[in-house]
């Protein structure tokens, strides 16, 4: 006979994994935004997340009210987005994707260094006023913080969905994503669109940075959160926001279940690489990811 406690425990691990996966999705969405419109895998997304969280918490520590610090950080992220477009992307227009990827890799180090130079290297506590104590729902212990983070992730997806389908600039983003040359031909200004999308990715970095910062403390390790987002992107597809969410859910749940049920047989500590195993298995079946656009090229 099945032990009821074991069944409850299984679901607790599963739900915890799904909620953790949504935290990964928050980071992955930033990647998707930029990839979707410019075809660039922005490795600097983690560094942007660190920069946003560190800027926000430093402003709060200097006495700025929460809302002011949020708006000021967002303004700084917009400035950063425009600066990146002007100084890095524009000079590299029409270069191969690997060049652009390497540029973002370099950018990641520059942003990390600048963040530490500007705001120092100390670890900061970030209190968003959201309780992280467990609550019992249907016999399962679930973190209230994780529920709020999940709600924010869904809210962000809904807002981005509306933005892409209901606004002129959103439609322009989609046009650029579909065909850059056609978009140029109908008069869309690519540099402005790229700058705006980098600013939007900056906003996503700020939201993700605040939630992850509240969870881990605002510290350098925030920049390596990208490693959690990569399997999500591989699985969900690099250009699909929905894919980032579904990918996050699958990765989160499978890595937690693997850690609990397989880990003890192989020495534990497997979740970081197990996520990549899952992503690679999906990749073998669907090379463009679950929701990624299939690219057919004439050769």
């Amino acid at each position: 006979m099945m032990d009821w406690h074991e069944v409850l425990f299984f679901f607790e691990v599963l739900v915890g994994g799904l909620l953790a996966g949504l935290m990964y999705s928050l980071v992955a969405i930033g990647f998707v935004l930029i990839y979707k419109t410019s075809g660039v895998l922005n490795f600097a997304q983690g560094a942007m997340l660190l920069f946003a969280a560190l800027t926000f918490v430093s402003l709060v520590n200097y006495g700025a009210p929460f809302l002011l610090a949020f708006v000021a950080t967002f303004a700084i992220m917009i400035g950063l987005g425009f600066a990146i477009e002007r100084t890095v992307l524009r000079p590299l227009v029409n270069r191969p994707p690997i060049t652009l990827f390497m540029a973002t890799l370099g950018l990641a180090y520059v942003i990390e260094g600048a963040a530490q130079l500007l705001w120092g290297t100390q670890v900061h506590r970030l209190d968003l006023g959201i309780s992280d104590k467990p609550m019992e729902i249907a016999g399962l212990l679930i973190s209230s913080f994780d529920l709020v983070a999940a709600a924010v992730a869904f809210g962000l997806v809904a807002a981005l969905g509306a933005f892409f389908t209901r606004t002129r600039i959103g439609l322009a983003f989609r046009a650029v994503a579909d065909d850059q040359f056609a978009a140029l031909a109908v008069g869309l200004r690519l540099p402005r669109i790229w700058a705006t999308v980098w600013a939007a990715a900056g906003f996503v970095a700020l939201v993700a940075g605040l939630l992850w910062g509240a969870r881990l403390g605002v510290q350098f390790s925030l920049s390596i959160i990208v490693l959690k987002a990569l399997p999500v992107l591989l699985l969900g597809g690099f250009d699909s926001i929905l894919g980032a969410v579904v990918g996050g859910l699958i990765i989160g749940a499978s890595e937690k279940l693997a850690e609990v049920y397989l880990g003890p047989y192989v020495g534990g500590g497997i979740e970081s690489w197990f996520a990549y195993v899952v992503a690679l298995l999906f990749l073998l079946v669907r090379p463009s990811g679950l929701f990624g656009q299939k690219i057919v090229e004439r050769v």
Binding site: G17, K228, E259, V260, G268, G269, S272, W273
Partner: peptide, 20 residues
Amino acid sequence: QIEVAHPGNEQQAQWQTIRR
């Protein structure tokens, strides 16, 4: 003895195991 993968920014599964 329970291992946490480097750098340790996710420990949900380990602490659920501990709770069990």
